[in-house]
């Protein structure tokens, strides 16, 4: 894999090589596609291996040379991981938590973003303050949260975890929607107000529907964050509220390197997030950069 970095420099032909234009283009094209191909391999290799591991009988685990595809694929890792070892529980909890977070984060985030975009509420300071939440290292928050949740009996509680996720997705939701509302013409809402709408109605019936595409992406971001987050879940859930990443990590912890089981559950856990990922592709860049870069 180290070769990727080394080869990477080649696709840009140095100016010193003065070749005939056609030939240079061809060489450049070959290098370009070779680089893309290499990266694709680097990307898909691990995915293939995890897939093979999930259907590999354990007898094929430590063979030399490695078994690239098992002669007799098995589904036992899937059924063991899902049924015997809490896979379903994890998936169910993750779905519930992510569902709650998605709805709440989008509602709360949209409202705040609308206010900040339309009325400059809180001015720069509020905006900066929200953004600074994005810097906060989770480990700094999770220790006191753990102690406080203990008092409130919110440990190992889906709602406790969801509340925390809402807060950590708010910078996403707010900033995405903020940039969205800023670009939306104010005239439509003004017209609605003139027509006798209340402020609420102007938001709910005019601005909100217009912002729908942005809302969908903000929702997807909130979902993906909640679905994939690990540290909070590791600390705050263990039994009833245990989420998928925690279950997977326990397949690899302590005595049990349950490779097949962890691969099987990983594959199951990847599906919904990937689906949403495809859905929000158009708004991905805006989301990743909290609106700083327009994709």
């Amino acid at each position: 894999m180290a070769a990727v970095g080394a080869r990477a420099r080649k696709p840009r032909p140095s100016g010193a090589e003065r070749m005939i234009l056609g030939r240079r283009l061809r060489v450049e094209g070959v290098l370009r596609f070779a680089f893309i191909g290499l990266f694709l391999l680097f990307l898909l290799g691990p995915l293939y291996w995890v897939f093979v591991t999930s259907i590999k009988p354990v007898a094929d685990y430590q063979t030399v040379p490695p078994v690239w595809f098992p002669d007799s694929p098995t589904s036992i890792h899937f059924s063991a991981a899902l049924n015997d070892l809490r896979g379903w529980t994890g998936l169910k909890n993750s779905a519930i938590v992510a569902g709650i977070v998605t709805v709440v984060s989008v509602l709360v985030g949209t409202a705040a973003a609308y206010s900040m975009a339309r009325f400059r509420t809180g001015g720069k300071n509020l905006a900066f303050w929200v953004l600074s939440q994005r810097i906060m290292p989770p480990i700094a928050v999770v220790i006191p949260i753990f102690l406080i949740y203990r008092e409130l009996d919110l440990i190992d509680n889906r709602f406790g975890l969801a509340a925390l996720y809402v807060v950590f997705t708010l910078p996403f939701s707010i900033w995405m929607m903020y940039t969205y509302f800023r670009q939306m013409p104010v005239e439509l809402e003004e017209a609605a107000l003139v027509d006798g709408c209340t402020r609420w109605q102007a938001l709910w019936k005019v601005a909100w529907p217009l912002a729908a595409p942005g809302i969908v992406s903000a929702a997807a971001f909130a979902f993906v964050f909640s679905w994939t987050e690990f540290l909070f879940a590791l600390v705050l859930t263990s039994n009833e509220a245990v989420t998928v990443p925690v279950v997977i990590s326990q397949f690899l912890a302590f005595q049990a390197a349950q490779f097949g089981e962890s691969s099987a559950l990983s594959l199951c856990a990847m599906v919904p997030a990937l689906f949403l990922g495809f859905l929000v592709q158009k708004h991905l860049v805006r989301g990743l950069t909290l609106g700083a870069v327009q994709g």
Partner: peptide
Amino acid sequence: PIFLLPLFMSPVI
């Protein structure tokens, strides 16, 4: 879209 797959995965995975 294939290049973007990793962005939607849990770091644990």
